Amino acid sequence: MKNLLALLAGGLFGAGLAMSGMTDTTKVIGFLDVSGGWDLTLALVMIGALLVTVPGYYWILQQPRPACATRFDMPAKTSLDAPLVLGAALFGIGWGLVGYCPGPSIAVLGYGNWQVVPFLMMLLLGGWLAGPVRTVLELGIRAGHQRA
C-alpha cells in the first residue's frame, strides 16, 4: 500500500510538472535569467505549490500519526552547515546550467526525451559519490583538527 501511494504521489508530481510547463528547460532558465527576458511562470508555480503545501503540512502534523507509517520522520537537524550550503549551491549551479532538477528530468523521460539521460546518469553518479566524498572530507577535517 505504501509503495502504491508513493507511486501515485510521484505520478501526481510528474503530472503537475508537465501541466505547469516545468519540464521545459527554457521556462526554468527564463526564470533564472532576471537580466534578460525574465519568465515569471516558475514563481507562480512555486506560489501555487506553497498555497497547497503549507496548509496541508500543518494539517498532517496535527494528526496523531501518518497514514502509512508508525511515526513522523522529521529532520532532527535544523541548522545550516557547510555541506548543506555547498549542496544547495551545486544544485543551483546545475539547475541554472541545464534547466533540469531531478523531478522534471525524470518526468521528461515520459515524453521520450532521451537527451536527459546523460544528466540523469550524472545525477545518479553524484548521488553515489556523495557518501564516499563526504567520508573523505570528514576524515580530512578530523585529521586537521588532531594536528592543531
Score class of each variant (00 low, 15 high):
Gly48Asp: 06
Leu84Val: 15
Ala130Cys: 02
Ser105Asn: 06
Ala130Glu: 02
Thr23Lys: 03
Met22Gly: 10
Ala43Val: 07
Ile141Val: 14
Gly112Glu: 11
Gly11Pro: 02
Ala49Glu: 13
Ala89Thr: 15
Cys101Ile: 15
Asp73Pro: 09
Ser20Thr: 12
Ile47Lys: 10
Gly96Pro: 05
Ala107Pro: 12
Ala9Phe: 06
Tyr100Leu: 07
Ile106Met: 09
Gly14Trp: 01
Gly37Met: 09
Val98Lys: 00
Ala89Phe: 10
Pro104Phe: 01
Gly36Tyr: 00
Pro104Glu: 11
Tyr58Phe: 08
Phe72Gly: 09
Gly110Asp: 09
Gly10Trp: 05
Arg147Phe: 07
Leu8Arg: 02
Phe13Ser: 14
Ala69Lys: 08
Ala130Gln: 03
Ala143Thr: 11
Leu97Ser: 10
Thr41Arg: 07
Gly48Ala: 06
Gly37Tyr: 01
Gln115Phe: 04
Ala43His: 01
Trp128Gln: 11
Gly140Asn: 12
Gly99Asn: 01
Leu12Arg: 11
Trp38Val: 00
Lys2Asn: 12
Leu17Ile: 12
Tyr100Arg: 03
Ile93Phe: 14
Ser35Leu: 15
Gly94Tyr: 03
Val116Leu: 04
Lys2Ser: 13
Pro66Asp: 08
Leu123Arg: 05
Arg134Tyr: 06
Met22Ala: 09
Gly140Pro: 06
Val117Pro: 08
Gln115Pro: 03
Cys68Ala: 10
Thr26Met: 06
Cys68Val: 13
Gly56Thr: 07
Phe31His: 09
Leu86Gln: 12
Met1Leu: 02
Ala148Leu: 05
Leu137Ala: 11
Met122Phe: 09
Ala148Val: 13
Val54Cys: 04
Gly92Met: 03
Pro83Ile: 13
Thr23Cys: 13
Leu84Phe: 15
Cys101Phe: 12
Arg142Trp: 04
Leu109Tyr: 00
Glu138Val: 15
Ala43Pro: 04
Val136Gly: 09
Leu5Arg: 03
Ala82Thr: 15
Thr25His: 01
Gly126Thr: 11
Ala6Pro: 00
His145Met: 15
Ile29Arg: 12
Val108Ile: 14
Gly56Phe: 00
Gly99Thr: 04
Thr23Ala: 11
Thr78Ile: 09
Val133Glu: 08
Ala67Gly: 00
Leu32Arg: 02
